[in-house]
Write a protein that binds this DNA or RNA. Structure first.
Lengths: 212, 212
DNA sequence: TCAAAGTTTACATAATTGTTACAATTCACG
DNA sequence: CGTGAATTGTAACAATTATGTAAACTTTGA
């Protein structure tokens, strides 16, 4: 097994990808770590070191080819393979996600939407129909989705996650305020909006202190 | 000026707050760093050191009083003061936010909602009416909000942020895919859903590699 | 009242992460 | 085709962050 790459590096990868995508759409063909560092506000050497974790994508005296690097990072992130995803819980956040997020460009393919609320079951969202949560087991058995977007109330989050786990889902994008119980064979990305708000609140308070 | 607390510590504070809130609702009066560490999955030593950045909230031989510590962290985060916030852009995400997020409990008070779309202007959301973005200047002058939740399309994000900056807003919760230009006197929390998806994609891909 | 058990605090140590510096390489251009 | 400027890749160094632990303090129970 290769030496694993530190999570600090992984966290930065999507940001590199984002910037490269923009450069690409601007028609820029090549970029040096120095110029990219200025745009991104991090040091050039960090960029070089980060990228070197995965191989030498640059060329001395030339820099990095934007299109090539963009493609390589996509491969590293695994965006070239489309994992099937389901959305569980059509709350406002869940609904919003389906509209705004371009899953296809980020490694996923949304194949099913589920809820328990009779009012929501049957609704058309994008090109999908909201299904009854009761049917989720047979759906998962048939479709074998890899990932579930969990957008259910806090109180039931862990229960639902456990049920899905037993049905074979080992990856979650968790929007619920609850913290999912940790398991070795499960990967989770949490999006805790409340935490972000509180961090922002802290920053504002700190800034105000300094100014007084 | 006191020595500033590292951002690693700050990032963890909301999570402590969340766990303490839960303990509180469970009626647990006191907790040791050891037990909390087991629940949270981090070392006891880190918990103690993190908390000690802000003062000695614990008592040797006793542990930490949950209610007291909860209150102290709220004070540190600045949640006891309610900053006025406005929502700019009633996209799906923006709309969802107003429904799901309990701003009041996280240091903010939502006082205005703005959009440019005539179809949305006039809509009632919670107890607020969506106002025309054209009116935002006079509104800001009158109400002096501290923070803006930016939920506008990528293409206009930086322009809107600049306009708001000129009107006096120096704190942003940014949901747009764009990266806001950095300024010294502005604080920003970014929520890049796409990045989270890609990180999750990476984790899934890595896990699959290991298993092969 | 006293001793033992438990726990924080404070600090020393270890591990991780980021930066600096420079040799090796390539490009650009006359 | 040769020289100089540009740029990466990488090793050594510095800074930050996390962990382990001894000393001091508090509670508890007999």
């Amino acid at each position: 097994m290769e030496k694993s790459v530190s999570s600090s590096v992984i966290k930065r990868l999507p940001r590199y990808y984002r910037y490269l995508g923009e450069l690409l759409s601007l028609g820029i063909e090549r970029i040096s770590s120095k110029e990219l560092s200025q745009r991104m506000g991090i040091t050039a050497s960090q960029i070089r070191q980060d990228l070197n974790c995965f191989g030498g994508f640059g060329q001395q005296g030339y820099g990095y080819n934007v299109e090539y690097l963009y493609g390589e990072i996509a491969k590293i992130l695994g965006l070239d393979f489309k994992y099937k995803a389901i959305l569980v819980g059509v709350g406002n956040i869940g609904h919003a996600l389906t509209q705004n997020t371009n899953f296809e460009k980020r490694g996923f393919n949304l194949v099913g939407i589920f809820d328990t609320d009779p009012q929501k079951i049957g609704m058309k969202i994008q090109n999908l129909t909201v299904l009854d949560y009761k049917e989720i087991k047979s759906f998962i058995e048939a479709e074998c989705p890899t990932m579930a977007i969990l957008s259910v109330p806090r109180a039931v989050a862990n229960q639902v996650a456990n049920e899905l786990y037993d049905m074979g889902i080992k990856a979650f994008l968790n929007f619920s305020y609850a913290e999912l119980a940790k398991r070795d064979d499960v990967v989770v990305e949490n999006i805790h909006l409340g935490d972000s708000l509180m961090r922002l609140c802290y920053k504002i308070s700190e800034k105000n202190k300094d100014e007084v």
